[in-house]
Design a binder for these strands. Structure first.
Lengths: 208, 208, 208, 208
DNA sequence: AATGAATGAGGATTCATTCAT
DNA sequence: TATGAATGAATCCTCATTCAT
């Protein structure tokens, strides 16, 4: 599923992500910075990518994939919905406080830049290939509910996903807020968000 | 509160926003495009702003202010919490389908670019001056609840705001989805989001 | 007819031609060299031209026009066909020993490069505007013959022009040959070429 | 005289010529294109040539040699001067309409580029080795005249060659002209050029 | 001998900013 | 005050050449 990344390709990804983590502005990263950080020649990058935008887009998607795979495994390991959600929230917290790349990727989905055009294009291709990690995670989180087969109508599911996504997003914003720097408060919020998500999910499936 | 915008200054704002509405990538807008659209000379822009970043940042904040004032007035006009929330959601929908500028502004708050640095700097200044339009709207929406004076703890209020914000944000994303192009479906979702917000608000204030 | 060249535009033309005269390889001239020689900023060149190729193409066409105008005036001044032809040959000799730009322009007409594409495009435009300096010269040289109205068929005229052109071209190549460095020999060849051209012309018009 | 071309070396030559025939701009051909077309590795080319320029220069000289040998044989086969000249013109026509390489080679002789420097260098070497194919052809065409031993002065011969060359060149330009696309007209011009050349040759030798 | 991955020098082009008018 | 011509720093990308395999 993953080992098909060539070394230099992966070096580029890691360089882009490292630069981002160091606070670089994605829209002003230079190819020289990327290749310098990756420890390869500038020309080499162009053996693997058609341009700077592709490098950045793929780097963030790469990160997204790795993250989703981690989430997927974690979610599968946990038993209850609450534990699954908790695992996701904790992983998100980790991501956000450390790199924030996933957050930025989600943001780019609604931007209109060369990089985000690449992201959309690549996602479309992936979707056609059948690989959609983010949705896999959600499906894995809802196995129990989905197995009972009282399926709610499709647009309700879309709404649910958006809603859950927004709660996680909200959680992400909160832990970025100064008021929630302490683990104590974070925990309380995490529980609130968790309950809120679980309730929404169960209600939806009970109703239908 | 507002009329202190000079004509050329405002022309710049409108030009930036118009370019954005036309699908321009904010990070690649050029000063030439802005001033050309504003119908003024390139040098003139530098009489009012210290650089491109400031123009863009202020343009989006200007738009945010105008939008918030509109929201504020609408929210004050409505009677019940549900109607107030509904007004906000409808205004958001309008914004998003037409210009999306407010959405982009919110995004920029969590970016790390020259423009967003300006935004943070300007917001900080405004906060110090005591003008925080977005919070005014929320306060106006919650007049009844807040008047009852059973104030919940401060970090809960932060949580509430984030939660409400994320729901509105979620609603914004949803109506960008093709599946929700029809007014019929939109209405259903709007009601769902509305209920969800109202319930969260009332619960919080009842509990406390 | 001519004064419509802007100063910086003309500076570029002269810089390109000067570089060529200094022995630069047209296909490897850099924009930095051109603008450096022209004494203007690199960016300024792009205010007047869309790219390097356009600069070079227009520079050579500019030179061609200036040269043709000179030829035209000289040819009009002279009385007999032989004197007219002699004037052209002397002017060519001057051009070739000094700058060789006209020669290079003719060569580029049968190349297939970005510059020559520009030249063809520009020539086509000029032809549509009715300005064809080179043909004006030939027409001026043949006034007497053409006035007698015993017009030969059109493709014969084309042939004549090509033939005359090739003789002049041939003369141009000859005087590039070391053997013809001395004015003595040059004169002899010039007379030969002149006779050859005059004979061809008169024969064609007598025959028809 | 010739069979000493190694397979890979010849593959390079043919690749360069093929690219040129396909309309490539010689000054922008890349080594990758050449070796790709030749079906060999990029590094391999550098086992046989010191650089790109040498590849191109030698490719065109190779083509020139092949063409001259063909001309030489044809000219030797024909009996009269007119037939010899006609053979040359027909061969030229073939070359020009098909590949135009010979034309380009002649052009490069008066250019000032890295490739043409190589050509000059190589031609000088060949001349020292005594191999001058183009002049062999002319000598073969003029066997009868030269045998009569009424040799004109040397610079007259130079002039004659240039003149003949210019006529052939003129013919080449003509058949590139749209007006001369039809074989009918081409034939007429070919005859004209042929007569013109023969007359010039015989006159020169008679005079002397 | 043959290869092609890796390189980085080099060059075209863009565009924010200045400043003389 | 308003301008926009002029600038050149900054950056992407290409491609000839090398060299380890």
């Amino acid at each position: 599923m993953n080992c098909e990344y060539q070394p230099k390709e992966q070096a580029i990804y890691q360089a882009v992500l490292a630069l981002f983590e160091d606070g670089a502005d994605i829209n002003n990263i230079t190819v020289a910075e990327i290749t310098g950080r990756a420890g390869i020649g500038k020309g080499t990058a162009y053996e693997y990518f058609s341009g700077k935008e592709e490098m950045i887009a793929k780097a963030f998607l790469y990160n997204g994939e790795v993250f989703c795979r981690q989430l997927y495994e974690g979610v599968c390991r946990e038993k209850t919905l609450a534990d699954k959600v908790n695992y996701v929230l904790l992983a998100m917290e980790d991501q956000i406080t450390k790199t924030n790349c996933v957050f930025r990727l989600m943001q780019m989905l609604s931007e209109n830049s060369a990089v985000s055009n690449w992201i959309h294009k690549l996602l479309k291709e992936k979707r056609e290939t059948g690989i959609v990690p983010a949705e896999d995670v959600i499906r894995a989180a809802l196995t129990d509910e989905l197995n009972e087969r009282k399926m709610p109508p499709e647009e309700m599911l879309t709404y649910l996903m958006m809603s859950v996504y927004s709660k996680i997003f909200c959680y992400g914003m909160l832990i970025n807020d100064d008021k929630y720097r302490q683990e104590e408060r974070r925990k309380r919020v995490r529980e609130l968000v968790n309950q809120s998500i679980c309730r929404e999910v169960t209600e939806l499936f009970e109703l239908s």
